[in-house]
Computed example of a mutant assay.
Amino acid sequence: MAGSGGGELRAPIFNGENYEFWSIRMKTIFKSHGIWELVEKGIGSSYSKGADESDAKQKEKEESSGAGKMAIAEILMKDAKA
Rank of each mutant, 00 (worst) to 15 (best):
G42R: 05
G34R: 03
I24V: 10
K41V: 01
S45Y: 09
K41A: 07
F21D: 11
M26A: 12
T28D: 07
K27S: 12
N18Q: 14
G44L: 08
E17A: 11
M26N: 02
F14S: 02
S23M: 10
N18R: 15
R25Q: 14
I13Y: 09
S46A: 08
I29T: 04
K41F: 08
N15L: 13
M26G: 02
T28L: 09
K41S: 10
K31E: 14
S46L: 05
W36H: 14
M26Q: 10
K41T: 08
G34N: 07
E40W: 01
G44S: 15
E37P: 02
R10D: 09
N15T: 15
M26P: 00
A11Y: 07
R25S: 12
A11T: 13
P12C: 02
K27R: 15
W22E: 03
P12S: 04
V39Q: 07
N18E: 11
K41Q: 10
G16E: 03
K41P: 00
E40C: 10
G44H: 13
E20R: 11
S32E: 11
I29R: 04
F30K: 03
I35R: 05
I35Q: 06
I24Q: 12
F14D: 03
F14K: 02
G16H: 04
H33Q: 07
I35D: 04
R25H: 07
N18A: 14
S32V: 00
S32M: 10
E40H: 03
K41C: 05
T28F: 00
R25I: 12
K31M: 11
E40D: 05
K27N: 06
R25P: 00
S45F: 08
F14C: 08
I35L: 08
F21K: 12
S32G: 15
I43E: 06
H33A: 09
F14H: 11
I43F: 01
F30S: 05
A11R: 09
G44K: 12
M26F: 05
A11G: 04
G42H: 01
L38T: 04
W36A: 09
G42P: 05
N18W: 06
E20M: 06
W22R: 00
G42L: 00
G34Q: 03
S46K: 06
E20N: 09
G34M: 02
R10A: 08
I35T: 10
G16W: 10
S23W: 07
W36P: 05
W36Y: 15
R25L: 12
K31D: 08
S46G: 06
G34W: 01
S45P: 08
Y19F: 15
W36D: 13
L38H: 13
I13C: 10
K41N: 15
G34L: 03
S32N: 06
I29L: 14
E37A: 06
E37F: 01
K31L: 11
K27I: 13
S32K: 12
N15F: 08
R10T: 07
A11Q: 06
E40M: 07
G44T: 12
F14R: 02
G44I: 00
H33M: 05
I24Y: 07
L38I: 07
W22Q: 04
E17P: 00
G44V: 02
E17C: 07
I13E: 08
I29E: 10
L38V: 06
